[in-house]
């Protein structure tokens, strides 16, 4: 189905690991500027869906179309250049490099071997890195090694690394996990600011946080889509209540 209104079209997506179907015939559609939150119990296949979209895991069947390009056949770095950014569940930053260098590596220029060898830090790069660092509350830490940052600061740094790429689709896997209440609040504020001009897929367990940012919510269960709609809609859905409260 080619629908120009959707930036991302996922259809009949399946993947199995040794016979175990982690994602099973999943379809969903994301509009530009939409913030979609995927929720579901542990093992529902949420992270696997993100893995499939960003090319970390290869689909067994089905299609993922992003702005008309079929992602299932593309390499991870090509998917990134197509405009998809991904943040991991556990913060993943380069501990041995400074915050500045961490952000610089994500700066969308000089990504080929030759490009990296000849890359120069000019005014544009510098200005953009400082701007992003301010956004993610790390303006004063630019020359510090990432290893010394707190858990929450590493999460922000990784979000910043995503932000500097300016992706049209941003995927965040549990962005507030392991954060203090204060950090959580700051992060919600940060996310609300950066999700404005792009499509976002978020995996999150914190329902208050979900209600705060979600345009629509998709509930997954055992690799399948269980329910989809507004927060109020899915909360009222008896199937969802059954999965979360039943058993």
């Amino acid at each position: 189905m080619e629908n120009p209104n959707f930036i991302l079209t996922v259809e009949d997506l399946s993947v199995s690991f040794d016979g175990f179907k982690a994602v099973d015939g999943l379809s969903f559609y994301i509009e530009p500027n939409e913030c979609r939150v995927i929720i579901g119990p542990n093992g529902a296949g949420k992270t696997t869906v993100l893995d499939l979209i960003c090319g970390r895991t290869r689909a067994t069947a089905g299609s993922i179309e992003f702005k008309g390009a079929e992602l299932t056949r593309m390499r991870e770095d090509q998917i990134v250049h197509a405009g998809v950014g991904r943040k991991f569940q556990t913060p993943s930053v380069y501990e041995d490099l400074t915050v500045f260098e961490n952000l610089e590596i994500s700066y969308p220029r000089g990504h080929t071997v030759f490009g990296a060898l000849t890359f120069r830090r000019d005014g544009d790069v510098d200005a953009r890195i400082r701007e992003v660092a301010e956004t993610i509350f790390l303006g004063d830490f630019l020359q510090e090694r990432a290893a010394i940052l707190s858990h929450g600061q590493k999460q922000w740094l990784e979000i910043g690394m995503l932000l500097i790429q300016d992706p049209q689709l941003m995927m965040l896997d549990e962005p507030v996990a392991g954060m203090s209440v204060a950090e959580r609040k700051k992060t919600a504020e940060l996310l609300n600011r950066i999700i404005r001009d792009r499509a976002v897929i978020v995996i999150e367990h914190d329902m208050g946080f979900v209600a705060d940012i979600a345009t629509r919510v998709t509930v997954m269960h055992q690799g399948k889509r269980l329910s989809e709609g507004s927060m109020a809609h899915v909360q009222a859905d008896p199937k969802v209540v059954e999965v979360y409260l039943g058993h």
Binding site: D96, L97, G110, V113, L117, E158, Q165
Partner: peptide, 30 residues
């Protein structure tokens, strides 16, 4: 080589290869 961004990408790869890959680098070619 070590002082160029290439060198920093190498170190980054050693620390968190997946992050480099999903920052848009073709890790293998490096």
């Amino acid at each position: 080589i070590r002082k160029s961004k290439f060198g920093r990408v190498l170190v980054a790869m050693r620390d968190a290869e997946d992050r480099v890959r999903f920052s848009g680098y073709d890790v293998a070619s490096f």
